[in-house]
Computed example of a mutant assay.
Amino acid sequence: MASAKEIKTKIASVKNTQKITSAMEMVAASKMRRAQERMAASRPYAENMRKVIGHVAQGTLEYKHPYLEVRDAKRVGYIVVATDRGLCGGLNVNLFKKVVSDVKKWKEQGADVEFCPIGARSVQFFKSFGGEVSAHASGLGDAPKLADLIGTVRVMLKAYNEGKLDRLYIVFNKFVNTMTQTPVIEQLLPLPKSDEEVASYPWDYIYEPDPKEVLDLLLTRYVESQVYQGVVENIASEQAARMVAMKAATDNAGEMIDDLQLVYNKARQAAITQELSEIVSGAAAV
């Protein structure tokens, strides 16, 4: 058994760690509220944008935009959104497992794959995983701006426009609630059609000034908005996962302190018993 002094030192060390995890839990809770507000503010725009584009994709269009054309999938691109920092439980691991599983299916069909990681952990993962990385972004902070993502997104859009990509997906953690964050893979290009029922006869929108000009701008903005929404959802998920992980670490530290305190008391009691035994033995010898 370790000496009482060693156990006492260990208890002090665990208490210091507990203070750190407790502070990190409170910081994550504060950041999570702000991240949720940003996510809630942008989510209606992103969802309505998706509905409008899905409706456009079902029309009999005068101008068929390249983003609406379905091509044979010979090359697939993934924009993978992960965190910049760790200590958030299995959030990133579950996301990467989902990506690897989906990539495996495409490779079995003979398609090549390339990646665009967003977030330091995503960049680090794909360096070790292998595969072609076309562009990357990291260090976006807790309040990312669309301008920080446009350059990275445009690289993937340019590859799609040039025919170097036939499918484009975004992968991120969708915030459900504080305890639940679900990794999802959503198709960006070609544009997914809406599930809503539309008229069976041919129809189209009336565009001003010109369908090409309007759709070029609208569909590019659509892709950018979906990537931005994925990033803010992922940040809210990160803070929630970190808060839960740090709370679990704080609770575990408390249990460990209780166990060590019990061991310390036993060691101290054994030392006192031994001292008394030695005193009694000495007295008896005299």
Rank of each mutant, 00 (worst) to 15 (best):
K8T: 08
K19A: 15
A29F: 08
M39V: 01
A40L: 10
A40W: 09
A41Y: 10
A41C: 06
P44M: 02
H55P: 00
V56W: 09
K64G: 03
K64W: 06
R75I: 01
A82C: 13
D84K: 00
R85T: 11
G86I: 02
G86K: 10
L87F: 14
N94Y: 04
D102P: 06
V103I: 09
W106Y: 15
Q109E: 13
G110K: 05
G119I: 04
F126C: 07
F129G: 01
A135L: 03
D142P: 00
T152R: 00
V153E: 10
M156V: 04
L157Q: 09
K158G: 03
Y160A: 04
Y160N: 02
N161A: 15
K164H: 13
V171G: 06
N173R: 02
F175W: 11
N177T: 05
Q181I: 03
L188T: 04
D195I: 11
D195P: 14
E197T: 11
P209T: 02
L219V: 03
R221A: 15
V227H: 05
A236C: 07
A236H: 05
E238T: 10
M243Q: 15
M243W: 07
A245W: 14
M246E: 15
A248G: 03
D251M: 12
D251V: 12
N252A: 15
N265S: 13
K266F: 00
Q269N: 03
I272H: 09
T273R: 15
T273L: 14
E275H: 11
L276K: 15
V280E: 11
V280Y: 13
G282T: 10
A285M: 12
